[in-house]
């Protein structure tokens, strides 16, 4: 009988002790804010393209934290989707839109066709288009996220999405894929 009593007392003391410990820890190491949204947002490509149906990347990150599906970000591709799923603790799902070939593109305005309507400037989420009314516009390629949003509003269809041409500076070391190109047939030897 006393054995049972001792056990009960011991367990009670232990339970109290750990309860106090946990309570203390919860107070002491309390985490402010919702870092999940920040972490999710950090994973998103920040193209601000709105293809997910949210006005920008942060709202989508907030939506994912609130239970939205992780497969609505075409610019991020499958890789981003997997990371998002991992971070949000959900199962990865195939992307809603079929993933395009992951070549980074930037907008390019055919400048002699531009009529200076500023529609693309208003559409650009990251202010990467320079120009004013009736003046030719141009894309600041360094700032362009390749989101595509300026292409549709253009009344004269003078905006193209062109893949970034590889140069010596931004060239990637992938030996099997060295963009070997003969500029001119050299006949000298």
């Amino acid at each position: 009988m006393s054995g049972i009593l001792i056990a009960i007392v011991l367990l009670t003391i232990l339970a109290l002790f750990f309860g106090v410990l946990l309570g203390f820890a919860a107070e002491k190491f309390k985490v402010e804010g919702d870092p999940l949204v920040d972490q999710l947002e950090a994973l998103l490509p920040q193209t601000q393209c709105g293809q997910c149906g949210y006005p920008g990347c942060r709202p989508y990150a907030e939506a994912i934290a609130g239970g939205e599906k992780v497969n609505k970000c075409p610019p991020g591709g499958t890789a981003t989707m997997e990371k998002l799923a991992d971070m949000a603790g959900v199962e990865p799902e195939p992307l809603t839109v079929s993933e395009e070939v992951q070549v980074k593109k930037v907008a390019y305005i055919r400048e002699d066709e531009c009529i200076g309507c500023t529609k693309c400037i208003q559409a650009c989420p990251v202010d990467a288009i320079l120009g004013t009314g009736k003046q030719m516009h141009t894309v600041i390629t360094d700032y362009c996220t390749g989101c595509d949003l300026c292409v549709a509003p253009c009344p004269v269809d003078c905006i193209d999405m062109l893949p970034i041409t590889p140069t010596v500076k931004n060239w990637d070391w992938k030996l099997n894929a060295i963009p070997v190109q003969m500029l001119e047939e050299d006949t000298k030897c």
Binding site: E41, L44, P45, Q46, T47, Q48, R58, V126, D172, K174
Partner: peptide, 26 residues
């Protein structure tokens, strides 16, 4: 190859951060 990829990743991070800032400012 790994170094290139890492470099690109850092570059993309930077770009994304820039885009985010510009988007927020806008």
């Amino acid at each position: 190859i790994a170094k290139s990829a890492v470099k690109n990743e850092i570059e993309e991070k930077k770009q994304a951060e820039l885009a985010k800032q510009r988007f927020e400012l806008r």
